[in-house]
Structures are given as C-alpha cells and as structure tokens.
Design a protein around this nucleic acid. Structure first.
Lengths: 227, 227
DNA sequence: TAAATAAGTTAGGCATGACTAACAAATTAA
DNA sequence: TTAATTTGTTAGTCATGCCTAACTTATTTA
C-alpha cells in the first residue's frame, strides 16, 4: 500500500501530467511512452513536457533515462489513480444526480478532480453508495486506489462476424460521445460486426436491429467484451 | 439585470480579489475600502493588491482614482455575487449531504467556488431544492444574482440586557466555528447579553440555560437579530 | 503648520508553466 | 552505413501573480 498521509501538494499541472502519463502507460498499456507523445496527448509543446518531466523526476514521481522512455514510480501511480478515482466519481455524480448527459461531464470533472480534500471524495463516494463504474463504463478505483484495469479491446480490433458487448467508451471527446448516443448505442449494447472494409477500415455493425457504418476512428474509441 | 452571457474567463486570483472587495464593500457596508485593507483581508502584500487592482480596472470590474477608494462596477459585483452563490451552495451541499460539519466546509468551498460551469451550480441548486440559507445562516443569492443583504448586527454591538437570536456567523475561521459549536451555540439560539465589561470588551451571555463569557473578538463574528 | 504616521505606488525579483527556435541523439530507410 | 526523419533537449522569452524595498501622497496630531 502506498503512502496515504502525503498531503498532495502538487500543482494542477503536475497532476495533469501524472494522470496523462498513467493513462498512456497503464490504461493504454503502451510499450513505450516518450516525451513527444505525452506532449501531444496533453496538447502542449515538447519543451514544456520536458521541463515538467524534469520536475516530476526530481520529486520521484517519474523515472526515465535521458532519451529513454518515461515511467511512473509507485508514488506517481498512486497519485494518478487517485485523480482518476476523483474524475470518475464526479462524472458519476454529475450524471446520476445533476442531470448531466454523457457528453457534458468530462470538462467539468476535469476541473473537479483537482479539488483537494480526502473527505470530500470519500463522502461523495459514500453518498452515491460506492459506485464501481462511471457513466462511460470505466471502473472507479476504490479509496485504497485498488481497481481492476480491464483489458481494453477496441471495436476496431474485431473480425467480421464477431459479437460483442459495449463496456466503455473513451470520454475525452464531446463530439464522439454525442455521436455514440445519437446512433442509439449505450453501455451493454450487443453489437455484431457485419463487415470490415479493408479500404478505409470502416466497419458495418448491427445492434438493436439498427445497422450503422462507423469509421475506424470511431471504432478505436469503443471498448468491448467479446461474447 | 447584468450580462449573463460572459463566459467568465477570470483567473482564480481575479475572482478572489473581486469577491473579497465585494465582501468588504457591500456585505460589510464599509464607507471606504483601500488598497492596504484589501491586501490585509486577502493576506497578500499591498504591492500585489495594487497590481491586481490595476488589472481589474483595465477590465472594468473595479473603479478608483489614484490614492482613492476602491469600488466595484456592476459587472464586478455580478461576478462577486455569483462566487458567493457558488460558495454558499457548496457549503450547503457539503453539510447537508456529505456529512461535513460547520467548521469543515469553508476551505473546500473556497476551492469549489472556482469551478466554471453554470449548469453545475444551477443543477446543484435544484438538487437541493433551492435552499435560501447556507449552514452558517448566510443568504444564498439566486440564479439571477438577487439576494437580500441582511444588515449585519454583531453580538458585540448590543447593550446589556438585550435579547437576540443568532442568525449567522462568520465562516472564515475554523477555530472560531469549532468554539461556537463547542459551547453549544447554534443558528436561531436565543441569546441574552448579561454584562458588557468595559475593561476588555468581553461579554457575559446566557443561552439555553448556559452562561458563557466571550471575548470582544468572538462577539464581532456572531451576527444577530434583536428580538 | 510642520513633522510623524498611514496609505498607496513603483521598481525590481522570483517561481511556475507555457511558448519558439535551435540543436543533439536515436531510429529508420535507402 | 550513411542520410533522412523522428524524437528529445536546451536556451531564451513571456504572462501571471506573488514578494521586498524604496518611494510618494494623504492624513493625523502635536
């Protein structure tokens, strides 16, 4: 178990970098995450990333060799997981209690996840009776930072004829989320891959008696469980 | 009615200064608020305040002449009121739904009031069924920024023999709030001023068959209605 | 009313976290 | 195996918002 007592005097930026790194490294299970990749993910310049990584290394949250790949220390991971927990609990609250829709919660949760108070988030958790998944289907880490990282199978990775169930979607793009709900997809929807077109990677799918053709980019953001 | 469409691109600091100025000017009904007074209230140096006031003047939130008293424009007031609304709604939420006590809410609400989302705060308001007072007895402005500023009579301003009812307390000090609840005072408590001591301004009060002697400083932070 | 005090302002500095431009190292391809 | 490309680093700049020290203007009060 990692240190629970540190009062987390990190800046908003430091937190953003650690969370981004965690999502690239652990959630996306990348073999190598480099400086430029992190910069692109965060939409800042490589120079800014380089600076911040130096700082995070000096604080022992990040480890890397010069010109080498970036890695998180246990401490770094622990901070990132707590941020993810906060983000997902707030998203759940916004959706389930404050009438926010799927696609409206991300931006506000990005702000709320930086509020510093252990009591706040643990009480919010209790208030909602300890939810285990957020509105996008993502697992919410518990107060001890434990959670299962489900292997993320994208819809785009399936072959023709496969039948699957929608378990989560990438929440980072409002337009994507709007599109998902517009065509009628929802968590747990059963999807059949009818045709995969070599030419542009687009996929013809069927669900609830609806047929749709979606792009490769779309299918990359839809995570499924094969059934 | 003031402009509702501005998307409020103010920094946290700018918001803090506007809110502080509002509380000194309007809520405390001060005849004159100067640079140093504002600096002291915010616990920053007069030089910092001077800088920020320049910036807020250039943005038309503040008006003042060189070496003159500070004043808020309508726009400035409107922003401050919205911050106060957010602060008090969050305090109410923390107390009534998340098991926070009187003295724990202020610090977290100071963070939450800077979250930028009209929907968030209006939905929170609706969720709690439009409360009109926060846990410390302060009036919560409505979504249009309207609210009554009750004349604040401090316990310290009363004379011997006066009987009054506690309507609100200054929420800025944790130690003060702890003390208030420890001695058994609560909102609506009926208080009788038994003795005012010239020497040090301390006051002997009686409430719920309890007798207590409180300091002048304490009595300055307790707001009452004479009955 | 002149000196003392209080209040307000300016100048210059520092930390954070962005940026661009220039350069160095590593990787990939010809 | 060298050249091209990608990736990473460094140097220098800028805005924000804080600071101290020095200075100016206003207000008191002796």
């Amino acid at each position: 178990m990692t240190n629970k007592l540190n009062l987390n005097n990190l800046t908003k930026s430091e937190e953003d970098y650690l969370k981004a790194l965690f999502q690239l490294l652990i959630e996306d299970n990348s073999v190598k995450v480099g400086n430029n990749q992190l910069a692109e993910y965060l939409k800042v310049s490589p120079a800014s990333t380089n600076n911040m990584i130096k700082k995070l290394k000096s604080k022992n949250y990040v480890v890397s060799e010069k010109y080498g790949k970036l890695e998180l220390t246990e401490e770094g991971k622990s901070i990132a997981v707590r941020l993810i927990r906060k983000h997902r609990l707030w998203e759940t609250f916004l959706c389930n209690y404050l009438n926010f829709s799927w696609d409206e919660v991300h931006e506000v949760a990005e702000q709320l996840e930086h509020i510093k108070s252990y009591k706040l988030i643990d009480e919010l958790d209790r208030f909602m009776d300890f939810p285990t998944k957020d509105p996008h289907g993502e697992v919410i880490p518990n107060a001890d930072g434990e959670y299962s990282i489900l292997p993320k199978i994208t819809l785009s990775s399936l072959e023709e004829g496969a039948v699957c169930q929608l378990i989560s979607v990438n929440d980072a793009s409002v337009t994507f989320l709007k599109y998902v709900s517009e065509i009628g997809l929802a968590l747990s929807s059963e999807i059949k891959v009818q045709e995969v077109r070599e030419f542009d990677g687009s996929i013809k799918i069927q669900f609830n008696n609806i047929q749709e053709t979606v792009t490769r980019k779309f299918a990359d953001n839809v995570f499924v469980k094969v059934i």
